[in-house]
Simulated scan of single mutants.
Amino acid sequence: MQLNLNYRKAILLLIPFVVALVLMTMTLNQDNRRVISEISNYLLIIGMLIPTACQAYMLIGFINATGKNDPYFKINALIPVFFLIVHVFYLIFLSFKAHGHATSQYHVQPKSGPVTAAEIHGVNLVIMLFLIYTFINFIFTNNNYVSWQIKKIADTSKQAELRNSYLNPMRILVRTALYIFGGFVLITAIGDVLRFV
């Protein structure tokens, strides 16, 4: 249960995420905005689901390869995958529910200043908390667990084998995701500065 992952394959896994980020920054007229935002939401969640599922697959493969019985970390790796799958179905539900209605499903207060206040309650708060949990799990928890467990193994050849089979691909996936996201934030920030100068 291992993935032969290099930087090119990691970039391919993140293509839906990149396309979603590009679609989110496009300036569109009001007619196309709703459709494009729905498509970008689907791609964003699918783009987060694919690398999270790959990382969970590698973590579970690592736990099985070492013969450890760590149900907590298996469940911890699968919770974000389950959440993202449910979230995709929730987005599909919202898109079918929203068609035919002119109003948005978000409760936005009238603009009283430079920033519009939005009420985050109920389902939206749960979604935000699970997205934060998914981010922390993807960036920190899974990689650190595998790294710590490899350091506990006394046999250096077994350490090197596990590091090459599981830890290095997991790190490649996280680094590639961070590089793409950081590069995108930098490019959009520069673009915004140039547009308003």
Rank of each mutant, 00 (worst) to 15 (best):
P114E: 11
P114L: 02
P114V: 01
P114K: 08
P114C: 05
V115P: 04
V115L: 05
V115A: 03
V115G: 03
V115Y: 01
V115E: 11
V115N: 12
T116Y: 15
T116P: 13
T116H: 15
T116G: 05
A117N: 12
A117G: 04
A117L: 08
A117S: 12
A117I: 06
A118H: 14
A118Q: 10
E119F: 09
E119P: 08
E119L: 02
I120H: 08
I120N: 12
I120R: 08
H121Y: 10
H121A: 12
H121W: 14
H121I: 15
H121P: 07
G122T: 00
G122W: 01
G122H: 01
G122C: 07
G122S: 03
G122F: 02
G122N: 08
V123H: 01
V123C: 09
V123F: 15
N124M: 12
N124G: 06
N124F: 14
N124D: 02
N124W: 11
L125S: 13
L125C: 10
L125R: 04
L125N: 04
L125Q: 14
V126Q: 10
V126T: 11
V126G: 10
V126P: 08
I127T: 04
I127E: 05
I127V: 07
I127L: 00
I127W: 04
M128N: 07
M128P: 11
M128K: 05
M128Y: 10
M128C: 13
L129S: 04
L129M: 05
F130Y: 14
F130V: 05
F130A: 01
F130S: 03
L131K: 04
L131Q: 12
L131H: 11
L131N: 06
L131A: 00
I132A: 10
I132L: 15
I132S: 14
Y133I: 11
Y133N: 11
Y133W: 13
Y133Q: 12
T134V: 07
T134L: 09
T134I: 05
T134D: 11
T134Y: 10
T134P: 04
F135Q: 13
F135L: 14
F135E: 11
F135M: 07
I136R: 12
I136A: 15
I136C: 09
I136T: 02
I136V: 14
I136E: 08
N137H: 02
N137K: 06
N137E: 07
N137V: 09
N137L: 02
F138C: 04
F138R: 01
F138G: 02
F138S: 01
I139K: 02
I139Q: 06
I139A: 09
I139W: 02
I139S: 03
F140W: 01
F140L: 10
F140N: 06
T141L: 10
T141R: 08
T141K: 05
T141C: 02
T141M: 03
T141Q: 06
T141E: 05
N142H: 04
N142Q: 09
N142E: 06
N142K: 13
N143H: 00
N143K: 04
N143V: 01
N143S: 08
N143Y: 02
N143P: 00
